Amino acid sequence: MRKVLIIEDDDPKLDQIVEYLTQSSGNFDMTVAKSLNSACRQIDDNAFDVVLLDMSIPTFDGGKTANATGRQRTYGGKDFLTYMWEMENETPVIVVTQYNDFPGEDGALDMTQLHAQLDGEFPDVYKGHVYFEHNSDAWKSKLDRMLGVC
């Protein structure tokens, strides 16, 4: 059984990913983190075979008060990869995103530019990205292929 950490805060997207992995023949043991902080705790406390990472995640998990989830981080996924690098954790990471563009202080990056940046900065762990669409199954075959090489 392969241990997978899924870092995703969007419940409908998370549900589709979990449903797909459950129905696939990959035999996955899945753990979910919905924020940067909980993802860092999970990667510190557990060993995983692969990480499925959303690029835009909040700082903290949800709570019962307004703004309890902390600030949404456009590049929260990159922050997670940086944390893994600092901890010398070499678990393979696949980015699963539903965005083509990522706004930033120095201007927006499209997925091609972000892919090149992540590949350059984290070549040992970043294995590529999957473009997720709720109304298409194309992401499933790409994710399947990528999981096969991790």
Rank of each mutant, 00 (worst) to 15 (best):
L36Q: 14
Y99C: 10
N67D: 07
L147E: 07
L52F: 01
A39H: 11
M30V: 15
G77A: 04
Q72M: 12
R41M: 11
D144Y: 06
D54Y: 00
C150N: 10
S56V: 08
V50F: 03
T69A: 12
Q113D: 13
G104W: 04
T31E: 07
R71C: 08
L114T: 03
A116H: 06
D137R: 03
L147N: 08
L81T: 12
V130H: 01
G120L: 06
L81A: 11
Q98S: 12
E86W: 10
D119W: 12
F60Q: 00
T31F: 07
V51C: 12
E86Y: 09
T91A: 10
D144W: 06
D106L: 12
V149I: 14
I7P: 00
A39R: 07
H129K: 03
D44Y: 11
S38P: 05
G63I: 01
D45P: 12
P103I: 01
N46I: 15
I6T: 14
R71G: 06
Q16N: 09
D45Y: 14
T69W: 15
N89L: 12
D61H: 00
G104M: 03
H134I: 05
W85S: 14
T82G: 15
E8C: 06
G128N: 05
L5Q: 02
I43V: 06
C150P: 11
V4G: 02
L52K: 00
A47M: 09
N100A: 13
F132V: 02
C40D: 15
Q113N: 14
M84H: 09
K142Y: 03
W139P: 00
Q113A: 12
N46T: 15
G26A: 07
G76Q: 04
A66C: 04
L147K: 07
